[in-house]
Amino acid sequence: MSIFVAVQSDDFCVASEYDELRQQANCGAIVTFSGLVRELSNNILHNMTLEHYPGMTEQALIAIAEQAKQRWQLGAVRIVHRVGTLKPQQQIVFVGIASAHRAAAFAACEFIMDYLKNQAPFWKKEHTAQGDYWVAAKVSDQQALARWE
């Protein structure tokens, strides 16, 4: 199984990431997730700054992919996460899974996103019309993670 992880400020191309996953032999399913910076429901978001700990972040993402590999038979995992300043509707994360069967690909993709949201060392600061603030962990994200334990 191949694992690819990138943490970068540059945007990514979903089609190119998908094409990389298609190169895996004996894979009959590809599942992808692409997350976007979204508007806030109660405030105007100007942009978001994502910070990370270089080296540590990549290792954490690889460890998450390895955990998925232990749970399901996967052909490939690709994780791309952006850092820096991003505006609403810009791409922030890509997770792609290639597997022989769709059930494993869907489950692994969801698993990776749940672990990424809770365990990857990223810090988000939202810049809004009301001021700037660091984003705290959400109970709903922790609840999503708990179902995998």
Rank of each mutant, 00 (worst) to 15 (best):
V7S: 01
S140G: 00
A65G: 04
A76S: 15
E110S: 13
S99V: 01
V31N: 08
R78H: 14
A144M: 03
C13K: 12
Y53I: 11
V80R: 04
Y18V: 14
C13D: 15
D132R: 10
G84W: 03
A6T: 11
W148S: 03
L36W: 05
N26V: 00
D114P: 13
L145G: 10
R38C: 11
M113L: 13
I3A: 10
H101D: 10
S9H: 11
P121A: 06
L45N: 02
E126R: 12
V31E: 08
K87V: 11
H81V: 06
V135A: 06
L145T: 02
D10F: 07
I92Y: 03
P54D: 02
I79M: 10
I44L: 13
T49N: 11
R71M: 05
A25W: 08
V31W: 01
G75L: 02
Q130T: 14
T49D: 08
L40T: 12
G55T: 06
Q24K: 12
T128Y: 02
P54R: 01
Q70S: 12
S99I: 01
M1R: 04
A136S: 15
K124R: 13
T49C: 07
D10E: 15
F111T: 00
A136N: 11
V37D: 08
S41D: 13
P121S: 07
D114M: 00
M1K: 02
A107G: 02
F122Q: 08
E110R: 14
A76H: 14
Q142W: 04
A144L: 05
A60H: 12
L145W: 07
Q70N: 13
Q73I: 06
Q89V: 11
Q24P: 00
L40P: 05
L116I: 08
R38V: 10
V5M: 07
A65R: 00
S41E: 14
A107F: 00
S99D: 06
I112G: 08
E149F: 05
R147G: 03
S41P: 11
I64F: 02
R22V: 01
M1C: 07
E126G: 09
Q130Y: 09
E126S: 10
V135F: 03
Q89C: 10
L74A: 09
C27T: 14
A107N: 15
A76D: 12
G84K: 07
Q91F: 11
Y133W: 10
L145Y: 06
N118G: 06
A29K: 06
V31D: 08
T85W: 00
H101T: 09
A129F: 04
G28L: 04
R22A: 11
T128S: 09
K124A: 05
M48I: 13
D11L: 05
F94K: 04
F122K: 03
V139H: 11
R78N: 14
L86N: 09
Y53R: 07
F111C: 02
P121Q: 05
